[in-house]
Design a protein around this nucleic acid. Structure first.
Length: 622
RNA sequence: GGCCGCGUGGUGUAGUGGUUUAACACGCCUCCCUGUCAAGGAGGAGAUCGGCGGUUCGAGUCCGCUCGCGGUCGCCA
């Protein structure tokens, strides 16, 4: 490595070695390092500077007797100054070695130093991992990225993407780019729109995913496509959602569910072993149908690192004296619960806070039953039960419920009841029970630290419903998207019971987080039209919006299937981060802003003029 | 859109029974110091407590509104 630059009319050699790469094998060599002042220790005589570059740290010693000019220069140097230092690599004297750093056996005795740039005192410490308010980190993201955590995360991200590209290349997939300026599809998420200058009043949309393009690439005969694709969805943000995010988009012709799932099991397994060899991986990846996942966990993205599965006790409590339970069941609703192992010791206050927690999910309340005492559960008496509603409970009921939930003494049973016949969003409706218990299950696990943070428990969820009823729009809505193929044997249900149609869609889930989804696609015009009709899309509408897809299917479209896991979430899990913002170089805040560039921002009247756009002033509602 | 939390020197926090020079650590500045590596020692500067309004003799502290950030429900095919 030889990097030089012209400064003040002189050619200056900036760098011959990387700081972090120096080892005892370099002893005796004269090297030139370039990097940032990580830390400076001024002893009045000797000055030590830890110089940092992208490879790591090296200690540079400035000795006034060796090199008075360099020493004098080093006195004025401060943190984050950019230096080029030339000197000899020497062995450290025995007691001054630093076993805590990779370069700790050596140091560089500075002969000369060039200050390439000074630096203001940074707004937060670069050289230590202190917590800093996220807004400030984002405003100075280029400084935040300089810190160790983000340097590490960005490198994990690079290795992940590099692994994926190599893996798929070796299996004959080719990477093809698709347009960022594309067409709006008023299904699914809200689109980001880009006005057309040439055609006033018309807009491009940024792709929510390259879905249509990748299917058309299958029609085009590439057979195996992938792309590390940027996708855009204009919806409210979360810790695992950004307005623009990255997906591994993949499509394969002549493939079935099994081909895709096997491919991704191999990919994820290899990826974890490559990037996180220390992580515990559960293999082979379990498969679970949507119906089973909903029944056992109340969600389509279950965290399998711990138990506490949901248990439906409706039949056992139907005739209970406890009105909340019996009325729920009588009205066609349900009573379900979970068993918290060892939870009987939970305080009243803790249980109360769990009640408030499930109410946040629209549950009416939470009924707790603590099982106390010693011995088998079939010896339980009413004296062994601690519950706010104990007086309504019979010994037989508690025994029956405890037995069905496989509870032991010392456990805490938590129940949520929901009445039938209520609209989905009403508090206490039966449809709120599963989401509430899913939330409760994860909350309890988090409080009791039941989920091993070092385990990656993948699971494939299969056989999603094709459609669900939308009260808002008063029609059937695609659960996944419009192009998912239904199971052949469920076709008769189109006329009789659309909600029961299973689709050939699948999700990859890890530790309770959805990593991505995919499906076998429709590849025949007639089937596609049938699905569009089910969704209440008129033939004219279908022709206008999806005519190109329908037409393509008439020209020898092969059967095909695909998948699209989110890169940001995968990397976050591999990096052990909770928030995908920690693995994105320049993320946006929850309100979709970039505090560094100030985006989004107003544009000039001239810019709007060319686009034929007028901004409407926002008015207060009366 | 709903609910919840947070906002105090450059950074991270303390201070909320109302009245005090608003405290501590790190950082920063000056001086001393030749083997440190979270160097050490001495001294110093630096916050009108996110903003506006209100209650009060008196507000960092209480109330209302507002802005920003975050979490969550809805939403996210």
């Amino acid at each position: 490595m030889q990097i030089s630059v012209t400064i003040r009319g002189e050619d200056i050699l900036l760098k011959t070695h990387a700081c972090g790469d120096l080892r005892s094998e370099h002893i005796g060599q004269e090297v030139t390092l370039a990097g940032w002042v990580h830390r400076r220790r001024d002893h009045g005589g000797l000055i030590f500077i830890d110089l940092r570059d992208s490879r790591g740290l090296a200690q540079v010693v400035f000795d006034p007797e060796d090199a008075p000019d360099a020493h004098a220069a080093a006195r004025n140097v401060r943190g984050e100054y950019v230096l080029s230092v030339t000197g000899e690599v020497v062995a450290r004297r025995g007691s001054t070695e630093n076993p805590n750093m990779p370069t700790g056996e050596i140091e560089v005795r500075a002969a000369s130093v060039e200050v390439l740039n000074a630096a203001r005192t940074p707004p937060f410490a670069i050289n230590e991992e202190t917590e800093v308010e996220e807004l400030l980190r984002l405003r100075y993201r280029y400084l935040d990225l300089r810190r160790e955590r983000m340097q590490r995360n960005m490198r994990i991200r690079h290795r992940t993407v590099a692994y994926i590209r190599r893996f798929l290349h070796e299996r004959d997939f080719i990477e093809i780019e698709t347009p960022i300026l594309t067409n709006s599809t008023p299904e699914g998420a809200r689109d980001y729109l880009v006005p057309s200058r040439i055609q006033h009043g018309s807009f491009y949309a940024l792709p929510q995913s390259p879905q249509q393009y990748k299917q058309l690439l299958m029609v085009a005969g590439f057979e195996r496509y992938f792309q590390i694709a940027r996708c855009f969805r204009d919806e409210d943000l979360r810790a695992d959602r950004q307005p623009d995010f990255t997906q591994l988009d993949l499509e394969m012709s002549f493939a079935t569910e099994e081909d895709i799932l096997a491919l991704f099991e191999e990919l994820f397994t290899g990826l974890v072993r490559e990037v996180r060899p220390d992580a515990k991986l559960v293999t082979p990846f379990p498969r679970m149908t949507y119906a089973e996942s909903m029944r056992r966990f109340g969600t389509d993205k279950p965290d399998l690192r711990f138990g506490m599965e949901l248990c439906d006790v409706s039949d056992l409590v139907a005739s209970s004296e406890f009105g909340v339970f019996s009325n729920a069941v009588k009205s066609g609703g349900v009573v379900e619960g979970i068993c918290v192992p060892g939870g009987a010791e939970m305080s009243r206050k803790q249980v109360d806070s769990l009640t408030a927690f499930v109410q946040g999910y629209g549950a009416k309340g939470l009924v707790s039953i603590a099982l106390l005492g010693e011995g088998a559960v079939d010896t339980l008496t009413i004296e062994d039960v601690k519950s706010p509603v104990a007086k309504y409970l019979s010994e037989a009921l508690v025994r029956g419920v405890a037995e069905k939930m496989e509870a032991k003494r010392g456990d805490l049973l938590l129940f949520v009841a929901g009445e039938g016949g209520k609209p989905k969003l009403d508090a206490g409706s039966a449809q709120r029970v599963k989401p509430a218990l899913d939330g409760l299950r994860r909350e309890v696990a988090s409080r009791l630290e039941l989920a091993d943070p070092n385990t990656l428990h993948y699971v494939f969820i299969t056989e999603f419903p094709l459609v669900e009823w939308s009260d808002e729009e008063n029609r059937w809505d695609a659960l996944h998207h419009l192009f998912v193929a239904p199971f052949d044997e469920d076709l008769p249900l189109f006329e009789t019971d659309p909600a029961a149609i299973r689709s050939r869609a699948y999700d990859a889930v890890c530790n309770g987080q959805e990593l991505g989804s995919g499906s076998v696609r429709i590849h025949q015009r007639e089937m596609q039209e049938r699905v569009l009709r089910l969704l209440g899309i008129s033939d004219e509408d279908a022709q206008a919006r999806f005519g190109h897809m329908l037409e393509a299917f008439e020209f020898g479209a092969p059967p095909h299937a695909g998948f699209a896991p989110g890169i940001d979430r995968i990397v976050a899990q591999l990096a052990g981060e909770e928030d995908i913002r920690e693995v994105i170089a320049f993320p946006k805040t929850k309100s979709g802003a970039d505090p560094m560039t100030g985006a989004p921002s107003p544009v000039t009247d001239e810019q709007l003029e060319v686009l034929g756009i007028r901004v409407v002033e926002e008015r207060e509602e009366p």
